[in-house]
Computed example of a mutant assay.
Amino acid sequence: MHGLGSNYLNLRKLAALYPVPVIELHIEGALVYGNGFAYYTPQALKKNEAEVIEKTADALYTEIIRILKENNLICESMNIIGFSQGAILAAVLSARYPKFFDNAVLLSARLPDFLREFGQKKLSKDKIKTACFIAQGEFDPIFPVEEGRRLRQFFSLYSCVMPEYHEYPYGHKVSRQTLEDIYNWFLD
């Protein structure tokens, strides 16, 4: 899932990280934003962040299920990769549907405040079955490195698998080293 102002092609090359053949679903945001698309706009978050992001995540979940059913796709393993806004949504999906994804790759994201509250009220230790790889840039101007640490802490509290966490010496992007680390994580 792509970041704000990007499109489904942005992360397409990351499918090669899986050491086995995969069926790719690239779900593009429906809102035109800049030169690309968004799943929700920053202006919408001023209304009610929890409502906007939860509604978007639930719509994405419904769309994924619809695509799988319509195409008779039976998946042995469900994985999700997200960057920035897409990673925020991937984190929310992993928490709200704790048994749906086997693996989540969360690149340059943040933990929404409502998700921490959701965890405290609705999740217990070992509830989330999704294994997470979290990557955060040390110099990310959009989501400071502390945001990645908050994601790691959240998944450490509620996941049955300790998250794999990496900080990289760059900003809001994905480096070659990140790709190598993700590939090696999938192999383990």
Rank of each mutant, 00 (worst) to 15 (best):
L111C: 03
N103S: 08
Q120E: 15
H26A: 15
I27Y: 06
I23C: 12
R150E: 13
N48P: 07
L93K: 06
G3Y: 00
E51H: 09
E138K: 14
R149V: 01
I128L: 03
G34K: 11
K13V: 05
S124Q: 13
P98R: 01
E70P: 11
A57Q: 10
N7V: 02
D188A: 10
S6E: 15
A57K: 04
R66K: 13
N48K: 09
E70Q: 14
E49N: 08
P98M: 05
F186A: 09
N72I: 00
V145H: 07
N48G: 07
I182C: 05
S6I: 01
P19C: 01
L179Q: 14
L73S: 06
I74F: 12
T178N: 12
Y158W: 08
Y168E: 10
E117I: 06
L106W: 00
F114Q: 07
E76T: 12
T178I: 02
A87I: 01
I142V: 14
P21E: 09
Y33M: 11
G82K: 02
A59E: 14
S108R: 04
N10W: 04
L68P: 05
Y183I: 05
E180D: 15
L93R: 04
R96H: 10
Y158A: 04
G119R: 02
F143R: 02
I74M: 11
N10A: 14
I65E: 15
A16T: 12
H172C: 05
H172I: 08
L179D: 13
C75H: 04
I64W: 02
I128Q: 02
R150I: 00
Y158F: 10
L9E: 15
A90N: 06
L157A: 12
A109K: 00
Y61C: 12
T56Y: 02
G171N: 11
N72L: 09
G171D: 14
G171E: 15
I23F: 08
